[in-house]
């Protein structure tokens, strides 16, 4: 099994529901975002770019691209970042020494460091009294490695896990389930019959920074209103 995701940019509304759902479900401390949505080329989200008469606009959600040739896995000196049995790149919170080499290595800017204790950071954000968020239990993968915990220790790196705690129970990741436009698909790339595999044969899918050779397992279907342009490094 090889988990992958397909994001249909034609369907994406840029509403950022996936980013918020991801943040809430995975208990990310204030200032930490595993999943972002922006309007490429534009200073402001949801604002068109281009010249008069030739304006365009599309939205690009970016989370961990789950690279198959992942630079973060390669550089991690202690093997805290690793592939699980489904090709998902995970971080062991108990192993990470906080060297942040992986943040330098990752071309997609998705890795987030805990610059301070998670609980302390949340206190400083002044949420309503008694409010807390995030899946309330620790989650260990099949090998027993701690890849999710509701309150993050300071000094370790975190990022998207493809919602390891849900996928393990047969549910789709939070971003996929919460998207009001159904723009996200999740499934097994090894199975030619899966929805994701079938989508990949149809519309000229592309991946981000493909020429770097990271071989992401997150694919994008182009938005037609941006002229169906391929988004690649120039």
């Amino acid at each position: 099994m090889k988990y992958g995701m397909v994001i249909d940019l034609e369907k994406c509304l840029g509403c950022r529901t996936c980013a918020v759902a991801c943040k809430a479900h995975n208990g990310q401390p204030p200032g930490v975002w595993w999943n972002r949505v922006f309007t490429p080329g534009s200073k402001f989200h949801q604002t068109g770019v281009g010249e008069y008469g030739r304006m365009g606009m599309y939205f690009l959600p970016v989370c961990c691209q789950m690279c198959s040739n992942a630079p973060c896995v390669k550089v991690c000196p202690v093997g805290a970042t690793y592939y699980d049995e489904n090709g998902v790149v995970l971080i062991d919170y108990e192993r990470c020494i906080g060297c942040r080499y992986c943040m330098t290595a990752c071309p997609y800017g998705v890795r987030q460091f805990n610059w301070q204790d998670g609980k302390k950071a949340t206190e400083k954000a002044h949420y309503a009294h008694g409010y807390s968020y995030g899946w309330p239990h620790k989650y260990r993968d099949k090998q027993g490695r701690l890849v999710y915990m509701p309150s993050r220790p300071k000094g370790v790196v975190e990022k998207c896990t493809f919602c390891a705690q849900y996928v393990n129970r047969g549910e789709a990741p939070a971003c996929v389930r919460s998207c009001p436009a159904n723009a996200r698909y999740f499934g097994d790339l090894d199975d030619p019959q899966s929805e994701v595999s079938r989508l990949l044969t149809q519309r000229g899918e592309f991946r981000l920074l493909e020429d770097l050779g990271t071989q992401p397992k997150v694919y994008y279907l182009p938005a037609r209103r941006s002229g169906g342009e391929r988004i690649e490094r120039i």
Binding site: G50, M57, G109, L209
Partner: peptide, 9 residues
């Protein structure tokens, strides 16, 4: 690193 072309420019 994740820098993309501006559509139309």
């Amino acid at each position: 690193p994740l820098s993309l072309p501006v559509p139309g420019v």
